[in-house]
Design a binder for these strands. Structure first.
Lengths: 413, 413
DNA sequence: ATCTATTTGTTGTTTAAGACAACAAGTATC
DNA sequence: GATACTTGTTGTCTTAAACAACAAATAGAT
């Protein structure tokens, strides 16, 4: 079970903080499970039935959860009530890309209920992306039904994000440098804005809702046209580092090769496992992952096989290192790495084991991500949801209809 | 502030667990600071003065802490009482090596009050080490003053330890494979026995008492005659991995070199940064770290300098990767790496920055460890102390005088 | 030396919230 | 339809932290 809260603290606990903690715990379980029986909440939390009842009542009054009668019998005894997130609680997910910016609406129950992709001129500036995002958000808010509560905005950034103030430090593909993105978007929208690295958010999403559900130690590797990003969950918590820049797994040097990656570092995983190289070989241009996948799957020539195996070898070297470093339970692959993996799953696993210590790799499993195109949308939405969940009774939810004077708060993960 | 507790849990908090948590918090602060004012405890924990008073009283009744009048004025107002760990609370630290086993006694206040190093024949078996350790422990217990309370035994293992059951999975230097060390030593001593990887424990010690005090994100790298080990603290918690094998930083591949490390992996940090190579060059045999350090410091020949810089280059490659992966606040070096670093500190830092992303490395600091020969002794003792601190009122402390029927519990980190 | 302001420790009371117990409600099995 | 079983609800109990008032100990001002 993965959650971002729970950092070490020397604070003591008053009875008030106990209530907050228990409200958080219940709301988190409801959110992570999408729906859950009251009886399950009591057994998982270890709290008394009456206590859970009181907590749910409070969350219901806050408009965060709803109860319903569970359909379908569950055995002897009075049937337990089903608790689910209130569909009126939503977050915006903003995903800037090189040629477009996508804004989505995600409910606390994990449904993507709206999506709008705005094509942008080549090399949009951060200001462009902020303006377009704010416009789409304003438009979408008009269509919300009355009573909708907005937790905030989560932004997935293909680059390095400083946690403390939501500044985009450097996003190579977009060419963005040192942009106070969170502050600006917050001013435009009046909503709380949270930023996160795209791969780290993908990792979070897979750990909470995807193929690594309930996994406490996992390594996530994502490769797209912009290079290789990564994320790590250790001990149930995202590895963020001192400033939030941790998880740059693609820039790990594994070879003496002089090939440079997109950040100019030689011999790194990103410099050796390249989507471009495969596209070149197959003579594909601006292909989708699906098209590339089809080509890889149908590869018959020994030259193609050799190229793919070379990439698998390099990938394995990187994964071996990560196994030695993190001893993960699961490795999750996403982007075109899924195609490489599927081409010869046993080979990749064998090579990873060969390059790592027997103890560290003996139980590791490699899997493809399960969330597909929702990966970053769900991941980014988790940022505002986390903030809400960590203080359910005091979090400042915003209404659908923007009031001019409202001002958001800036933060990120 | 670094602590090992605090893993994510979906448990709720009853008033009982609040008390446990607050007792733990206070005891942890007392332990980590060696001594601390009551007024500081109230401000750090945020608890009410009267609550802190009650908590300390309970810890005092448990024999875990003592209060004393603080000497030296601290300003206006009634002087606050000093709280320190009870000197009667101790743990044993066991450090098996290739040719000897060292048993030490550490107080809850972090003092090493006894040490006994037993030379052993070449290639001792785990059983030999267990027998010798148990004998020394039994002997030492006799000399304890009445009222001494023993938290347990911490063992630093130069190899891979399975957390769940305290089994040594593989310790290459010692030639130990799959040994149920914790269970056996617990049976012999009647004490709770906890195992940990040596480098991970060193990391823990430096993070709590050494040069990385109050650092939440740090990477620790230790190099001795047996190779390179590592440890990582992220978000204030030790990175342990799914089974406890995480932190094998020395086996990270950084080059295409075919040189093998002590575990047979090619091109790894451990295969390139080798104490042996330096000893060979300086024509030293079985030298101490101090002797090697003196040679490195006084190196004048260009051949020597080149060799040292080559090792620094390789070290930098490894550290660059770790910076990209963990974005640590501090990198701590120990073993003969301290000599390499001191030979040219600016060079190493410059090379590390060159090989890593600017954002991730912009604030990183490299330091030598501060604990010297106490490193593993203190680190191992933290394991039983952690267990005690996490449940102060219910932990089963053992008395100095062994009673035959007592049986310990086995666990590890 | 005395008085005042300040900080800390102590003690008795209040308050918040989880535990507990008893009962009601709803389902499956016999 | 009776019984066993599980869950939800309600009122009471218990625990522990907060709070308030006072005592103790110090520094500085008069």
């Amino acid at each position: 079970m993965v959650s971002n809260t729970g950092a070490i603290s020397n604070r003591g606990q008053s009875s008030d903080s106990v209530r907050q903690h228990n409200l958080s715990t219940v709301l988190r379980l409801v959110h992570l499970n999408r729906k859950i029986l009251r009886s399950q909440l009591t057994s998982i939390t270890g709290l008394n039935r009456s206590t859970v009842s009181a907590l749910i009542t409070e969350l219901e009054e806050l408009g965060l959860v709803v109860e319903s009668e569970s359909q379908g019998s569950s055995g002897v005894g009075r049937p337990s009530l089903m608790v689910s997130p209130n569909e009126n609680v939503v977050a915006f997910s903003v995903n800037p890309e090189i040629d477009a910016t996508t804004v989505s609406v995600v409910t606390l129950s994990g449904q993507v209920v709206a999506r709008s992709r705005k094509l942008m001129g080549s090399h949009p500036s951060p200001e462009d992306a902020i303006r377009v995002s704010a416009e789409v958000i304003a438009e979408m808010r008009k269509s919300f039904r009355p009573g909708t509560q907005i937790a905030g905005v989560g932004v997935s950034v293909p680059g390095q994000v400083r946690t403390s103030d939501g500044v985009i430090r450097y996003a190579p593909q977009l060419g963005w440098v040192e942009s106070a993105f969170a502050t600006a978007l917050s001013q435009e929208t009046g909503l709380n804005v949270f930023l996160g690295n795209d791969a780290s958010l993908g990792c979070l999403a897979e750990a909470r809702f995807g193929t690594a559900k309930n996994v406490n130690d996992l390594v996530f590797l994502f490769a797209g046209s912009g290079g290789i990003g990564g994320g790590v969950v250790s001990n149930g918590m995202t590895v963020g580092g001192a400033a939030g820049y941790a998880g740059e797994l693609g820039h790990m040097k594994v070879s003496s090769s002089g090939r440079l990656d997109y950040s100019g570092l030689p011999g790194t995983l990103e410099s050796l496992v390249r989507r471009e190289d495969l596209l070149d070989f197959f003579k594909l241009y601006v292909a989708t992952d699906e098209e590339l996948d089809a080509e890889i799957k149908s590869s018959e020539s020994s030259r193609a096989k050799r190229l793919i195996h070379d990439q698998l070898d390099s990938l394995a070297e990187g994964l071996s290192n990560l196994v030695n470093i993190f001893n993960p339970e699961v490795i999750v692959l996403a982007g075109f790495l899924t195609s490489l993996f599927e081409f010869d799953p046993d080979y990749l696993l064998a090579q990873v084991k060969k390059g790592s210590l027997a103890a560290a790799s003996e139980r590791v499993v490699i899997r493809n991500g399960a969330l597909g195109s929702d990966l970053l949308v769900l991941g980014a939405a988790e940022l505002p949801f986390d903030a809400l969940i960590s203080s359910p009774s005091s979090y400042n939810l915003k209404s659908a209809y923007a009031t001019r004077v409202e001002s958001g708060e800036v933060d990120s993960r």
